[in-house]
Amino acid sequence: MSSSSRSIIPEPLRRLPWAVLSALGALTIFGSTVLYSAAGGRLGPWALIHFIHFVVFAGLAILVSRLSRDRLRQAAYPVYTLLVVLLVMVEAVGKIGGGSQRWLNIGFMNLQPSELMKPAIVLVMAHFYANLPPSMIRTWRALLPPGMLLAVPAALVILQPDLGTALAICFGAVVVIFMSGVPVWWFVGGGLAGAIIAPLAFFFALHDYQRKRVMVFMDPESDMLGSGYHITQSKIAIGSGGFFGKGFGNGSQSHLEYLPEKHTDFIFATMSEEWGMMGGLFVLFIFFVVLFRWGMGVARRAPDRFSQLLAAGMTATMFFYVAINMMMVMGLAPVVGIPLPFMSHGGSSMMTNMLCVGVLMAIEKWSRVGGSLN
């Protein structure tokens, strides 16, 4: 960058990770292109608003990146409490869609508080373990309070019902708990307990449609025109794309309305049919650069315990989105309603992921300036 450019562009803007933001911008534009095609060559109702969401929430991420370490830590419990209240409001007055009650209408968008709980639970867990004395890391005090903090939002989300989001909330929290250094045998014991509880939960806790999803995951061909329809059509779309795809605007599965949720949960299948394996590799490359090269790099360079746990948890939260969505559309995981970051249409999902990016940018700044506010 030339000296004249440095004098024009403010210092805080120059220090932003523009390579990462540019990569995410390219992925979002690619997602808008896929949404444009899925809508039959129209910017509405998905493509244009998808890009606008990215621009607006990129601005939000930049604002979050300006926060100091102390200010973010102070916000942990108030933000958590606010989101729990919003989850309770969802149960009382929330908007119903697709058989679930998950959204609050706030005018310019339908807000899904459970989405925002994903980064919030990571923040509150990182704050808790950063304050926990090392002598208590192997006692019940290291597990019971965070377990209660996790159980409340997870239970409220399951009631909506939204098993996929509840699992995502639990995943981010468990990653932070694991990274905090608690005894590994706790996780081994938890795994054994889960193996015992899972069959009971399958028969007595899951809704009928959730049990069907698990059974269809095990054998999609058993009900290809019923419960297995989503996975079957998704596999057809991905497989028919081949290496280079059918070409932009030529996706028969999405254009002929065979592929359900073509603009949200199954956007990767929509993309793969038209762009093929090359499009899939591009998407994977962007996520590799952002999550593993940058996100985990920020966690390794973080200046203190709170920052390390927070960065690892935020990166893990975005990774869960990517891994579960791609496994889901390829039939490697049950269909649980997890969108693909920066590709799927949806304001709440974009907000959540950009908040994670903003927090990572803040931690990267703390590594340079010692946690003070620019």
Rank of each mutant, 00 (worst) to 15 (best):
S4E: 11
S7G: 05
L13E: 06
W18D: 03
G25W: 15
A26P: 06
F30D: 03
Y36V: 00
G40E: 01
G59I: 04
L60D: 10
R71I: 03
Q74P: 04
P78N: 13
L83T: 06
L87P: 09
E91K: 15
G97W: 09
L104F: 10
I106Q: 09
I106K: 13
P113C: 02
L116P: 09
L116H: 11
K118T: 01
A126T: 11
Y129I: 04
A130F: 09
I137N: 07
P145A: 11
A151M: 12
A155V: 14
A155E: 08
L156A: 11
L159I: 10
Q160H: 04
G164R: 02
G172H: 11
L192F: 15
A198G: 04
L200C: 09
R211K: 10
M215P: 00
F217C: 01
E221M: 08
S227N: 12
G228F: 02
I231A: 00
Q233K: 13
I236E: 14
S240A: 11
F244P: 01
G247C: 08
G251E: 09
G251P: 14
S254Q: 14
P260N: 06
K262W: 07
H263T: 10
G295V: 04
F306C: 08
F306V: 08
L310Y: 13
G313P: 11
M314I: 04
M318G: 04
V322S: 03
M328F: 00
G331R: 05
L340K: 00
S344E: 02
S344D: 01
G346V: 05
S348Y: 12
M354D: 11
V357R: 00
A362T: 14
I363W: 12
G371D: 14
L373D: 06
